[in-house]
Design a protein around this nucleic acid. Structure first.
Length: 222
DNA sequence: CGAGTTTGACCGGCGC
DNA sequence: GCGCCGGTCAAACTCG
């Protein structure tokens, strides 16, 4: 976890790819993704752009958060295992492709068991998910990234006077989590760590692009 | 009243 | 084996 702040673990990222998937984007979960001809319709192309990236799908709204002034994008880095072991990678993908019952159903399953801790379910070794961390300079702890988050915990962490907050994506089938914490050294800097990949389109992006998509759908008829 | 937040307790991993 | 620590749960609470 300390890799978050360790410079030796920091991996410089290419320019913040808000709307493009890292390499080969997974198939979109939304039914809208399948066009009538199944090929490269403008609608399908547009929807491809909505493939959820692991990082925020929308940039911090500087107009709404004037204090965020200078976003230190150069500090964008990847934490944790950059290259996942094959088995773990498979586990992660399986976890994200519909077997999200673990976390998503955990809290509401009526399971009397108490918290099973940070190691996850079934006593297996913790499967490391892709994690992406970046720093922003902001008065707000929560940057507007286009997704809806539900806070499920807050902890005081060692060597930091600021608590760490834990959030989970509110989408029913999404298992993405994020941690938000202010730097002890510079409390103006918020470190946000994303864990996992959204398996659904960005809500606010969909909201914003809705009219455009409708128009594309209309135009694609001709 | 439903959705989201707060907060204390609990659990597993890990270092010693 | 023990204790520390990070992560999660879930009941209680708040808010719109």
């Amino acid at each position: 976890m300390d890799g978050l702040h360790g410079d030796d673990e920091a991996h410089t990222f290419p320019p913040f790819p808000y709307f493009s998937a890292p390499s080969t984007p997974p198939p979109l979960a939304s039914p809208l993704a399948s066009s009538s001809d199944g090929q490269h319709s403008p609608l399908a192309a547009a929807l491809q752009q909505l493939t959820p990236p692991p990082w925020p799908c929308t940039p911090p709204d500087l107009t709404l958060q004037p204090a965020m002034g200078d976003v230190n994008w150069s500090s964008l880095f990847q934490t944790g295992p950059v290259a996942l072991p094959e088995q773990e990678e498979e586990a992660v993908q399986a976890d994200q492709s519909g077997e999200n019952d673990g976390e998503a159903g955990g809290s509401g399953s009526g399971n009397k068991e108490k918290a099973k801790g940070s190691a996850g379910r079934s006593g297996k070794k913790k499967a490391s998910k892709p994690r992406f961390a970046f720093q922003t300079r902001s008065e707000n702890d929560i940057l507007e990234d286009g997704y809806r988050w539900r806070k499920y915990g807050q902890k005081a962490v060692k060597n930091s006077s600021n608590p760490r907050s834990y959030y989970r994506c509110t989408h029913p089938t999404c298992n993405v989590k994020k941690q938000v914490q202010r730097l002890a050294k510079d409390t103006a800097i918020v470190v946000t760590t994303y864990e996992g990949v959204h398996n659904h389109p960005c809500e606010k992006l969909m909201e914003a692009l809705g009219p455009i998509l409708k128009q594309l759908q209309f135009l694609s008829q001709f």
